[in-house]
């Protein structure tokens, strides 16, 4: 699998570290039900077959975080953007 880093160009996946789902939003730690929300946020994961939006860190390249749209069935990558520029609402990375 090769990931098209917006700065470095297309690179082998082993240059990257994977964080996971980029659609999650960190809960408000001051909320009443913060503990339950953090449990869900940290531990519960969807496992979609198909389009997925993910965080990848280009550890052995530009050392920038990327927001990558990947099809989990084919590893086809529809888009990769710098996280610093991907500040659209969660799940809306198109």
């Amino acid at each position: 699998m090769r990931i098209p880093c917006p700065y470095c160009g297309e690179r082998d996946a082993h240059e990257f570290a994977y964080l996971g789902d980029a659609t999650l939003t960190r809960p408000d730690p001051a909320a009443e039900d913060a503990e339950a929300r953090f449990h869900d946020y940290v531990y519960l994961r969807d496992n979609p077959a198909g389009a997925h939006v993910e965080w990848w860190y280009h550890a052995n390249g530009c050392r920038q975080w990327l927001k990558v749209e990947r099809d989990t069935r084919t590893h086809a990558i529809a888009a990769a953007r710098a996280a610093r520029e991907a500040d659209t609402p969660a799940g809306d990375a198109a």
């Binding site: 470095c8 690179r11 240059e15 052995n60 390249g61």
Partner: peptide, 10 residues
């Protein structure tokens, strides 16, 4: 120029 890995060395 590239920043990458050669033989597992950054």
């Amino acid at each position: 120029a590239v920043t990458t890995v050669i033989a597992h060395i950054g």
